[in-house]
């Protein structure tokens, strides 16, 4: 059955996606497309499984990047991936408020330890958006 075939193929794709660190995967073919996105919480869980040693150092060097305004949180592209090394002025995301994109930057180099918000989530002043281990 063609329908079952599509379900099987998507299931396989999801399985493959989950085995990677990818945040977003989009495949276009014959005018149609499939897009997979990973939620922030699941990304944190992946990081804990894949690199448990990352949980040890944050005590001393963990830095929280917080929102300084109220708006909708959105990832910049390419979206940051937990575990990756960040440049000192990397734009990680933006908070959209009153139609303006307010960039959220890495504010120094470091390794991204966790992403604390989902794409499209409303965020308040002072809310932690990312945790970065400064190196």
């Amino acid at each position: 059955m063609p329908g079952n075939n599509v379900v099987e193929r998507v299931r396989a794709l999801v399985q493959t996606f989950l085995e990677t660190d990818l945040v977003r995967l989009r495949i276009e073919r014959d005018g149609g497309h499939v897009e997979l996105r990973r939620r922030a919480s699941s990304r944190l869980a992946t990081a804990e499984t894949a690199e448990p040693q990352m949980q040890a150092p944050p005590v001393e060097n963990l830095d929280e990047i917080k929102s300084d305004l109220v708006g909708i949180f959105r990832f910049s592209r390419p979206a940051p991936i937990v575990g990756e090394l960040l440049d000192s002025d990397r734009e990680l995301a933006y908070v959209e408020a009153l139609g303006i994109r307010n960039p959220v930057r890495s504010l120094g180099s470091g390794r991204l330890v966790s992403v604390c918000c989902d794409d499209g989530q409303p965020v308040e002043y002072g809310q932690t958006l990312f945790e970065v281990a400064r190196v």
């Binding site: 305004l69 109220v70 708006g71 009153l98 409303p122 002043y125």
Partner: peptide
């Protein structure tokens, strides 16, 4: 800005 943004979101 923060108050209006809160009302809108």
């Amino acid at each position: 800005p923060n108050i209006i943004s809160t009302a809108l979101i």
